[in-house]
Design a binder for these strands. Sequence first.
DNA 1: AATGAATGAGCTTTCATTCAT
DNA 2: CATGAATGAAAGCTCATTCAT
Lengths: 194, 194, 194, 194
Amino acid sequence: MKRNKPKYKQIVDAAVTVIAENGYHQSQVSKIAKQAGVADGTIYLYFENKEDILISVFQEKMGLFIEKMEEAIQTKATASEKLFVLIENHFNILSHDRHLAIVTQLELRQSNKELRKRINEVLKDYLRLIDHIICHGQEKKEFASHLNVRLVRQMIFGTMDETVTTWVMNEQKYDLVSLAPQVHELLLQGCKQQ
Amino acid sequence: MKRNKPKYKQIVDAAVTVIAENGYHQSQVSKIAKQAGVADGTIYLYFENKEDILISVFQEKMGLFIEKMEEAIQTKATASEKLFVLIENHFNILSHDRHLAIVTQLELRQSNKELRKRINEVLKDYLRLIDHIICHGQEKKEFASHLNVRLVRQMIFGTMDETVTTWVMNEQKYDLVSLAPQVHELLLQGCKQQ
Amino acid sequence: MKRNKPKYKQIVDAAVTVIAENGYHQSQVSKIAKQAGVADGTIYLYFENKEDILISVFQEKMGLFIEKMEEAIQTKATASEKLFVLIENHFNILSHDRHLAIVTQLELRQSNKELRKRINEVLKDYLRLIDHIICHGQEKKEFASHLNVRLVRQMIFGTMDETVTTWVMNEQKYDLVSLAPQVHELLLQGCKQQ
Amino acid sequence: MKRNKPKYKQIVDAAVTVIAENGYHQSQVSKIAKQAGVADGTIYLYFENKEDILISVFQEKMGLFIEKMEEAIQTKATASEKLFVLIENHFNILSHDRHLAIVTQLELRQSNKELRKRINEVLKDYLRLIDHIICHGQEKKEFASHLNVRLVRQMIFGTMDETVTTWVMNEQKYDLVSLAPQVHELLLQGCKQQ
DNA sequence: AATGAATGAGCTTTCATTCAT
DNA sequence: CATGAATGAAAGCTCATTCAT
């Protein structure tokens, strides 16, 4: 399996660095190859084409992201706590990997429709995770059960995403993680049983 | 003033159509010119360069968007009602101009950092409008006054934005406007005085 | 006759100014029109095309140049004196019209083959004038009569031209006219009866 | 080193041919690439941009020119003989490479100010060579020592240059090299100790 | 006679991808 | 497996010229 070979990971990591530092449109394959310390042609032994590198970046990083998130959420019992962990981890991970934050919030969105569709495929796993929290909350009567799950999820994800994007656009000048409690309070108000 | 000449509007409208149908990266200047029924060179009598077309598209459309929105909001007295009108109009306008919806939710985000900064300048007017509603609500004691205005705004905008994007990504298969009441309820819960 | 209309002269003068200030390749028709205070289209009522403007510039300026030169030369009796007047006037005229100097020594030489051929047509009158001085000198036994007239003329013109070009390339930092006596001495040595 | 790779030379030679046959302004990069038998993009592996091709043409050819010239001059003892060898070789080299003659006398002069400055840098080595002959002549009392070296050099270079240009403009109809003795006589008269 | 908005052909350069070594 | 030289398609922009007013 190519995904486990060292050069595969080298290239993915190089891609994150290059894209974060140069922006999507200035991230030529040759630049990624140079950063990864391999020849241009070598890239094509591990990836179909340039788009495939980008999708792989997202899959790899998002895979880890979701994995960590699932573990963290399982440690909590109530939906409210799970939601808090979700928000805090979401902010925390992106706060501690600024390259990744730039790439996910800004650069990857510059890709074309086709690529974005495939990125959304990966994202679905994350959205499903949020859905689980919401359903759990509704079952346990913590959250109002008449609420449309998709809308609640869009509120949760949209709010977190917008918050991170604003933070990135402001050049990460303030502390993102410390916003978690307030965001949690806001979102919880929106969901909870009145 | 170039902005009032008929060809200017022709080109802006052509750009929206072409970008929505072909995607940002497949929207060559020549394609936009053809759609507008003018020569390629004519584009450059009205716009600095290709990027300028995109910014102008956003400025023109967003200008109308905000204008309509301000009028609609003024007709309502309470912050809750204002919020409802905001959501409903946001969904309504994009629902009725599907090309515009595609362009704002997907294609314009593919632009580079510089362009996105300029787009954000325009967007700021809209965000400010949301801020006004929130402050008004806090003054009138409808909304909890301890809430951070920026975070609330990010929740409101993020939720609406994510909802529209999901709808566009789902190829606009369901009715967006009918989601307004539920989104309003969700967001209101988040803001209001408990 | 178009050549006597005021706009014709306006445009020719504008062309000299624009070319000297912006260089040949940055002298668009529209720029010349603006400088002349006429509309772009008006240019084409007086000139066939852009090339025609350039040729006319050269014809007009060279015509005056030759006229002045002929007058000045006629005032002198010996070939040696005539040669001195030629050199001094050549340097003097270009010294006092730096725009013209730039245009003739640098910018007009950037034109294409066809245009340069037509410029050479105009130049021929000047070269003929030099030939007359040489023949006169040979007839009067001032100059060695075995010398090939064309070669002598090439020496005279080539030396003057190279001297002016060097001066222009050096940004006209020194006094060109004061070089006339030495250049005269040099050239005279080359021609004269030993 | 790129300069020693075969494709580099291929492209430089192709450029000389294409420019001589089509003129500077009709020498598109694609035409040069085709003549060189390489892809358009390959040009940019060896040259910065189109201008760089032209400068390289001049550097390569002028380098050889000066090299040959230096060798030839060293074989002669007196300044008069050195001057003769200079003239004869100058005419000889350009006589035997008519494409090069067209390019140096006509086409390269069509370049813009910046390019011409860089061409002049290369030319300086040649002018310095002429200066050496003059100084040598003055030291050995062959040439009049009161003469300004720069002016003498301008006479020598200007005369040769004008002679070659006239020959090229006359479509190389007569034998250039056979003019060398007369040109030498003329120039020598100008320089020598009276 | 004069205008100036409109035209559209034309060209340099980039960069993802290939393939001989 | 790995290389990197070579490829060539693709597109934004300029500007001389026209022509309806």
